[in-house]
Amino acid sequence: MISRQKKRAWEDRLAKLTRAAQAAQDAVFVAIYEARQDGLSQADVAYMLGGVHPTGIKAKEEKGRAIRERRRGGNPT
């Protein structure tokens, strides 16, 4: 049997890691958007990310744009 304290410590640790993973994913989406705005092609970005097909970059770019706009307090539409 595990103590409540140890269980709570693991809950906190895993929650922190989950938040960090989401923040990192959001940062990747924003970077994709910014790279595309800077003139890189979908193929360039896909190559740099590795394991991503160029056709999937547009959706990630749109997510990045929405995240960036939301952070700036703007309307993402």
Rank of each mutant, 00 (worst) to 15 (best):
M1D: 11
I2A: 14
S3W: 00
S3I: 00
R4P: 11
R4I: 11
R4V: 15
Q5D: 07
K6C: 08
K7L: 06
R8E: 09
A9Y: 05
A9S: 07
A9M: 06
W10Q: 05
W10I: 02
W10T: 00
E11G: 06
E11V: 01
E11I: 03
E11M: 06
R13Q: 14
R13D: 15
R13L: 13
L14G: 02
A15N: 03
K16P: 03
L17S: 07
L17A: 12
R19K: 07
R19T: 14
R19A: 12
R19G: 00
A20N: 04
A20K: 13
A21H: 09
Q22L: 12
A23Q: 13
A23I: 00
A24L: 12
Q25D: 05
Q25C: 09
D26G: 00
V28Q: 10
A31P: 07
A31M: 11
I32Q: 01
I32D: 03
I32W: 01
Y33W: 15
Y33Q: 02
E34T: 15
A35H: 06
A35K: 07
D38L: 14
D38W: 07
G39T: 05
S41M: 01
S41H: 04
S41A: 06
Q42N: 12
D44K: 05
V45E: 05
Y47T: 13
Y47N: 07
Y47W: 09
L49G: 09
G50W: 09
G51Q: 05
V52Q: 01
T55P: 01
T55F: 06
G56R: 15
G56W: 06
K58R: 12
A59E: 09
A59M: 13
K60T: 00
E61D: 09
E61H: 07
E62V: 12
R65G: 00
R65L: 03
I67K: 02
I67H: 00
R68M: 08
E69N: 05
E69C: 03
R71A: 15
R72E: 13
G74Y: 04
